[in-house]
Design a protein around this nucleic acid. Structure first.
Length: 578
RNA sequence: CGGGGUGUAGCUCAGCCUGGUAGAGCACUACGUUCGGGACGUAGGAGUCGCAGGUUCAAAUCCUGUCACCCCGACCA
């Protein structure tokens, strides 16, 4: 990529951030002038931002090619017929931007390309001997998000690398999936990011296996569960909560009704009755699949896991909380004082709640709760299930170690699709007996634009961005002091700029007539990892000053052989992500 | 979609309640001083007050409509 002189760069960076920026990456990208907003969820990439984007793309492209995938480019606009054929014209909902051309023909602006690529496959692929094959592209997508936010992190238009593999059998699909998994590991490692591959819910796209790749960052939107005992990692939605070890303690207290005026929450109970939340039980009423109601019982200190709950037989999917009116008329209870005792409703009890003795719950009577409640004595032995989110310290489902929870930003997702699209769209090849064989598919995405934002979320400080070397827009920032007046500084700076440029170290020369403080501050905002200061002071001693963006002190750098010096520093800072 | 909020200079915002013909800081231009951690002075340019209608002698300000943008919301038992 070409190097650059800042005097030729017209984009002014901002001291104050536009009021609508909430997350750091959005603020910093705006401040540094990497992106500019055009409209809700639509951003232009400015020169320096584009450089970063291109670097990520280049790494992705190299690793996809290395993994044997073939790059193609499919249109962003797709005919509605394909979506009608796959069934997603109805399924996809308002996120799908539907457009009509001058002939009143229906199109969509593609939010993803399964249909188009499957269409390519069924036209081009004739024989099982052409399999397996993996087509990928790096292309714009559009998803009409209800509420685009966080800048480029959740925008409506974004750049995605999407790959689709086609296989003759499941073993081949497994193998292709594994290759993509390995390629993703290499991609995010090469980007210099700290990340985790986690087991995921395959959700609406369907299919059998799926993993998400998350960049770890405190501001991440997703909770990721991982074990300290092995490499188990999963989405919070998916992590199973094991039943507590050991049996249930014996009942020791009598069932007692207590007045609890104005206690509507577990927190109220804790303060009014002086019991820990873990001795309370909450009873949530949800719609059943058959139009009935189902009561879900979990411990007071736990949270309901909607994904787990809606997978229960007899529970409406998607999960829907019952309306207070229905609860009143059909169960004769008020929200806020519901309990399992004597409730005229099917009960499903979380393992942890089922292991309680002498617990507290609602009395199904406004203003009253019951204490000393016991399964098998005051009410039947419960039907149990896993209903809750795991919490820190729960045992790992693999049996090794305990679980911790971290936050992550989803930047990649790999799926085994199976035959969902190939069957719907008749993507068939001839098998060894010339019989039609419906192909197996996998799909693999990386949010390229989101990777850029995630890299910033993970790597920044008060002063600005700290790019990992491999995706930094420039590797080296040259800051000449007293640029206008000192001919000596100017000569050295020019020489070094040409030298570093020729060596491929992508220098950015700050040749603006600006005060040093401004140059330093801007350099830190931009996050250029390696900085060289050229000043009279150093030149007198025959040296330059070097400082890594993460360092707090300067060190000497040689005037002669600077290229080698920097190569070594770059090697060091590229080896390990922070 | 429901609820709330905001549209005034490139950016951040004041002015609106109580109508009288538009301001500050940053940014920008010119000159001078300054110059190793976001300088200072002087002078200056820049705004259809989102848009349309209405009320009024007079509207950024009041009324109606409209558009755009932002925030919150399905974990309450």
């Amino acid at each position: 990529m070409p190097s650059m002189r800042l005097s030729a760069y017209p984009i002014v960076n901002l001291k104050e951030v536009p009021a609508d920026a909430e997350v750091v990456s959005h603020k910093l990208m705006l401040r540094a002038g990497l992106i500019r907003r055009l409209s809700a969820g639509l951003y232009s990439w400015m020169p320096i931002g584009l450089r970063v984007l291109r670097k990520v793309e280049a790494i992705v492209r190299e690793e996809m090619n290395r993994a044997g995938a073939l790059e193609i480019l499919m249109p962003t606009i797709q005919p509605a017929e394909l979506w009608q054929e796959s069934g997603r014209w109805e399924e996809y909902g308002p996120e799908l931007l539907r457009i009509t051309d001058r002939h009143e023909r229906a199109y969509v602006y593609g939010p993803t390309h399964e249909e188009v690529v499957t269409d390519i496959a069924r036209r081009e692929l004739r024989s099982y001997r052409q399999l397996p094959v993996n087509f990928y592209q790096i292309q714009l997508k559009f998803r009409d998000e209800i509420r685009p936010r966080f800048g480029v992190m959740r925008s409506r238009e974004f750049i995605m690398k999407d790959a689709y593999s086609f296989h003759a059998d499941e073993a081949s699909l497994d193998e292709g999936y594994r290759r993509m998994h390995d390629a993703y590991q290499r991609i995010f490692t090469r980007c210099g990011l700290s990340f985790r591959a986690v087991h995921a819910d395959s959700g609406s796209i369907g299919g059998t296996g799926s993993q998400e790749f998350h960049v770890l960052a405190a501001s991440g939107e997703d909770a990721i569960v991982f074990s300290d005992g092995d490499d188990y990692a999963a989405n919070l939605e998916l992590a199973p909560a094991l039943p507590p070890p050991g049996g249930r303690p014996a009942a020791s207290a009598p069932l007692t009704e207590v007045a609890t005026p104005k206690a509507h929450t577990i927190a109220d109970l804790v303060t009014q009755l002086g019991v820990p939340a873990s001795q309370c039980v909450k009873t949530l009423i949800v719609d059943g699949a058959a139009g009935d109601l189902v009561a879900l019982v979990i411990r007071g200190d736990h949270e309901l896991n909607a994904i787990k709950a809606q997978k229960l037989p007899g529970v409406a999917n998607p999960l829907k909380m019952a309306s207070p009116d229905r609860i009143r008329t059909e169960l004769g209870a008020e929200v806020g004082s519901i309990g399992p005792v004597g409730l005229a409703c099917r009960l499903v009890v979380d393992h942890a709640a089922a292991a309680l003795a002498d617990f507290v719950s609602g009395a199904n009577k406004p203003g009253f709760h019951v204490t000393g409640c016991n399964w098998g004595r005051d009410l039947p032995e419960p039907v149990t299930a896993d209903l809750r989110n795991v919490v820190e310290g729960d045992p790992s489902p693999t049996g090794n170690g305990v679980l911790g929870i971290a936050r992550g930003i989803e930047v990649g997702h790999i799926f085994k699709l199976g035959r969902k699209y190939s069957a719907a769209m008749k993507a068939e090849v001839a098998d060894e007996n010339s019989q039609p064989l419906t192909v197996y598919m996998g799909c693999y995405g990386i949010g390229i634009t989101r990777v850029v934002a995630a890299a910033i979320e993970q790597n920044h400080d008060e002063a600005g961005i700290i790019w990992p070397d491999p995706i930094a827009p420039f590797k080296v920032l040259l800051v000449p002091m007293n640029w206008l007046k000192s001919e000596r500084v100017r000569e050295v700076a020019e020489r070094l700029y040409r030298e570093l440029d020729a060596a491929g170290l992508e220098p950015l020369l700050d040749d603006r007539d600006a005060r040093p403080g401004v140059k330093f501050a801007d350099g830190e905002l931009y996050g250029i990892p390696h900085r060289i200061v050229i000043g009279e002071r150093g030149l007198d001693a025959g040296v330059l000053e070097y400082r890594h963006r993460r360092a707090t002190d300067n060190e000497e750098a040689p005037l002669e052989g600077l290229t080698e010096f920097l190569r070594e520093r770059i090697r060091q800072s590229s080896t390990g992500p922070a």
